[in-house]
């Protein structure tokens, strides 16, 4: 590797400046602001703030509403992650074996990813529309009177389906490229060593996909926790009422609709800590069991 010597010792810092500025303005500064606000009770109209210590946190933890949303968020995150990962993997393994017309087939599977979350939410909502939604019609065949936006479970179901649908192409791309990164000869050696297709998948393909799967696990959990905001927003239409929402949406509702800046800030700090713990856990305990080459 060639070492570049800068003529001035300050020059490298100058090059780093734009990136550092972006990180500072859009990450560190708001984080610090949020942590600070979380200890204050702010006047909704901006006429000053009172220091309240951990009251905002305690209030959040004590609220049964908050607990209910937290429980839903956990269920939502697990379901969306599990389903979008497994369906993405299933599609990738089948697409990998397609020989004729695999190009258009893969493109069709991938193009959903190009859709913006609110648009995906809108399209998803049309599927679940009370009057024209095909899913509602299909559910009616089985005697399921689906009422998205009114019934808690039905809304949660629609949310999860749309969120999973939106994330499948992303997982598909990564799993497919991961599969194609496994040398053909290794698969052939496995075909000679193991007669069972499923056995080969379990003992050779899956372990070699583990780095990809681990990466996707983190990405999908973050997606379920945060990036599904647009989908949820379209489904509950800004008025959560009795509908299920996730913690991120509650931060938004309390902060921007309820003007409870302090409470909202405390909740976002809690989320930040959850993500921190999750990341540490994933890297400490799961990555050890992953085989990198």
């Amino acid at each position: 590797m060639k070492r570049v010597q800068f003529s001035s010792p300050y020059l490298p810092y100058l090059f780093l400046l734009p990136q550092m500025t972006v990180v500072f303005i859009f990450f560190y500064w708001p984080s610090v602001q949020a942590i600070q606000s979380s200890f204050y009770l702010e006047d909704p109209f901006g006429f000053g703030a009172t220091f309240v210590g951990f009251d905002n946190y305690l209030e959040a933890f004590k609220s049964s509403h908050y607990q209910q949303i937290a429980r839903f968020t956990v269920v939502f995150t697990i379901l969306v992650t599990v389903f979008s990962l497994s369906i993405g993997l299933l599609l990738a393994t089948t697409a990998d074996t397609v020989i004729r017309g695999s190009g258009p087939y893969k493109t069709l599977l991938i193009c959903v990813y190009a859709i913006a979350p609110p648009v995906a939410g809108l399209i998803g909502m049309m599927f679940f529309d009370q009057h024209i939604g095909p899913f509602v019609t299909m559910a009616a065949w089985f005697g399921w009177d689906m009422k998205v936006g009114i019934d808690y479970v039905d809304t949660a179901f629609a949310m999860i389906v749309v969120a999973v649908w939106k994330q499948i192409p992303y997982n598909f791309i990564f799993f497919l490229s991961g599969l194609q990164g496994i040398p053909v000869s290794v698969r052939e050696a496995a075909a000679i060593d193991n007669r069972s297709r499923l056995g080969r998948f379990r003992t050779v393909t899956l372990p070699l996909l583990a780095p990809t799967a681990f990466f996707l696990l983190i990405i999908n959990m973050t997606y379920s926790l945060f990036d599904t905001f647009g989908i949820i927003d379209v489904i509950v239409k800004d008025k959560a009422a009795n509908n299920p929402i996730t913690l991120v949406y509650k931060v938004y509702m309390d902060g921007f609709r309820g003007n409870d800046i302090g409470g909202s800030a405390a909740q976002s700090v809690i989320l930040m800590l959850i993500v921190l713990l999750l990341t540490v856990f994933q890297f400490r305990f799961i990555e050890r069991r992953v085989h990198y080459n």
């Binding site: 040398p183 000869s185 290794v186 052939e188 050696a189 496995a190 075909a191 000679i192 060593d193 193991n194 007669r195 003992t203 050779v204 372990p207 070699l208 583990a210 085989h291 080459n293």
Partner: peptide, 27 residues
């Protein structure tokens, strides 16, 4: 292939990278 009672040695060896030598041999 698995039922032909043959064993093959590949050009790039095609060892299972996630298995130890022992596991490779025993697989």
């Amino acid at each position: 292939p698995a039922e032909r009672d043959i064993a093959m040695v590949f050009q790039n060896y095609a060892l299972y990278p996630h298995m130890t030598v022992r596991q490779n041999l025993a697989y």
